[in-house]
């Protein structure tokens, strides 16, 4: 497939994630939209890695492997981030009995 189809697909998924973060007030749904954006970026990285392999793979057989390692590390960091973030949201629910992000404006007062 030409690379621009992948670019448009990833951009669309990313923008759906951005719109979700801006429109929803449920903290966990916002968190899920952040995961969606991370996955859009991962998909684009893998597509670019295969594009680079297609360009210079005949000279360097290992071309493009760094991007896939990078995606692996993004997944590692995302898993750690999800566990800590969900713990923070559970604590917030325990204190306020709501997961509405608009309750978190106490720093304003």
């Amino acid at each position: 497939m030409p690379i621009n189809y992948y670019i448009f697909l990833a951009v669309t998924l990313f923008c759906i994630g951005v719109a979700g973060v801006l429109t929803r007030r449920n903290a966990i749904i916002i968190f899920m939209c952040v995961e969606l954006m991370l996955n859009a970026v991962n998909l684009l990285l893998v597509a670019f890695s295969k594009m680079q392999f297609n360009m210079v793979g005949k000279i360097h057989p290992q071309a493009g492997i760094d991007a896939q390692i990078f995606v692996f590390f993004i997944m590692v960091v995302a898993a750690a981030e999800v566990s800590v973030g969900l713990a923070v949201i559970v604590m917030m629910y325990r204190n306020t009995h709501s997961i509405d992000v608009n309750f978190l404006n106490r720093l304003k007062h």
């Binding site: 923008c15 759906i16 719109a19 979700g20 295969k50």
Partner: peptide, 28 residues
Amino acid sequence: GVIAGGALLLVMVAALKRADLKTQVAQM
């Protein structure tokens, strides 16, 4: 929020539409 997300999509697509990427192929 929807308009902001759509505007971001519009800007990205408009910026990437003219990019010379038609010849680059992701190998499948």
